[in-house]
Simulated scan of single mutants.
Amino acid sequence: MSLVVGLAACGVSAGLFGSMFVPVRKYDAGDGFFAQWVMSTAILFVGFVMHAIKGFPAFYPLAMIGGACWTIGNACAIPIINRLGMAMGILIWNTANCLTGWASGRFGLFGTIARPPANEPLNYAGLLCVIVGGVIFSRLDSKPKNGGRKASLEMGDIPEKEALNDTPKEFDEDESAEMAKQDTTIAAGSKDRIFAFILSLISGVLYGVTFAPVNYMIDQGIGSKDGLDYVFSHYFGIFLTSTALFLGYCIYKRNDPWINPQIVLPGYVSGLFWGIAQSSFFVANDNLSQAVSFPIITMLPGCIASAWSILYFREITGHRNFIILAVAMTITLCGAAMVGLSKTLSF
């Protein structure tokens, strides 16, 4: 029964994690700090509801550290997506997330107890497939479509007003200077993508350690054995850290932060998606162990985000990209299935 519950929780988490940025994708989130703060209020609401459902269990301050790690990693999410696209960003940081979380559960990192699966060869093979799928995903040629003017300018795009300027171009303009300018723009775009790729890896590692404090308390017997009892503490840490980051951002901007009122409702919906998905993640960890749940929940959202990018946002187009995506998704799904089976299947 625990296997069924665990896999069902994995399905809920993967679906919501893969869709969490869809509500905010069509709006200009600027630097992302305000959007994240709005998300954190929704996350705290979900945490309080779970806290009430569980009968108001004890508050665990240590669990807030995991929430803080997630928040710092997530602060980079919107800048990453603006540069790499939703599918590419999620796929890269989830690969790093997968490896970090899997290693933590498999080898007992950060003071936790190692929980090897019943079938280690199958688990390793499934993990390898997941990683290979992630590498193949990175070969996609994604064209991010930013929600607003500011995001577009950050990518080095030419503003629409300038592109459509009715003023005729002077014929005596130096064409070589124009070509040099274009080369500089392309180089800046490449540096942006490299920076976003590195930022994605850092974010993935921070995402991967988010459960470490909770697992430590469970393994050391200094807290509840039920992962859902830590949800409110974990989410409260997210809210406090998001608030601190947003206030720091306001100070840095001299009380002139980038705030788009249109992002409020979509940001709140995104936060609700994440809050429910993370609660399901706790359930999956309790029923499957991290060595099984992490590769499934961290990689399947990339497949779902890819579907959104193709069918809705049109960030991924072209025959070549579709073939790469089909191969990568097939390998990733097979790997996730192998990891899930490694929990109980032995030979």
Rank of each mutant, 00 (worst) to 15 (best):
F107D: 14
A77P: 01
P257R: 06
G133T: 14
G67Y: 00
G15A: 12
G11N: 04
V22A: 10
G156P: 04
I323P: 06
F347A: 13
C69M: 12
P23G: 12
I276S: 00
L300V: 15
D226L: 13
S289Y: 10
P261W: 13
G32D: 03
Y268K: 00
G105Q: 03
P168E: 15
S142R: 09
A337H: 11
I304R: 00
C250A: 15
I92H: 00
Y124R: 14
F195L: 10
L84F: 06
L272N: 02
G340Q: 06
G73M: 04
I92Q: 00
A29F: 04
M179A: 11
V22E: 05
K54N: 12
V46G: 01
L3N: 02
S19M: 09
A307M: 12
F322L: 13
L99Q: 02
T241V: 11
K54D: 11
G85K: 02
N82S: 15
K145Q: 11
S233V: 04
L247A: 13
P57D: 14
F232T: 04
F211R: 01
N146Q: 12
E173Q: 07
A177D: 14
N146I: 09
R25P: 02
F281E: 03
F56K: 12
G189R: 11
P301T: 08
N119Y: 05
P295W: 06
V269H: 04
T298G: 11
V22T: 08
S176P: 00
I259M: 15
T241G: 05
G105V: 04
Q278V: 14
L228T: 07
F282A: 06
L341S: 07
T210A: 05
G108F: 05
A328Y: 01
F195Y: 15
F236A: 14
L288F: 06
C98Q: 10
A63E: 00
P61K: 11
N94P: 05
L164Q: 08
G147K: 01
S293F: 04
M179S: 07
N215D: 07
L44G: 00
I194E: 10
M20D: 05
I80N: 13
L333D: 10
I296Q: 03
I304N: 02
P266S: 09
C76H: 08
Y249N: 08
V231Y: 06
M1S: 12
D256E: 13
C250P: 07
S309I: 10
D172P: 04
I131C: 05
D229W: 02
D256P: 04
G302A: 04
S203D: 10
I238Q: 14
G15F: 09
C129I: 02
A244T: 05
F294P: 00
R139Q: 15
F211Y: 15
R115Y: 08
G227S: 06
N321Q: 06
G275C: 04
T298F: 13
G67Q: 02
R149I: 15
R139P: 03
V132E: 05
L7P: 03
S280W: 00
A151C: 09
W102H: 01
M86G: 08
I136A: 11
V327K: 08
A326K: 09
A68V: 13
F34C: 00
R25N: 13
L345S: 06
M64G: 14
M39C: 02
T184H: 10
R25V: 08
P116C: 01
A307T: 09
H234R: 05
R193F: 05
L341E: 08
N165V: 01
V12D: 05
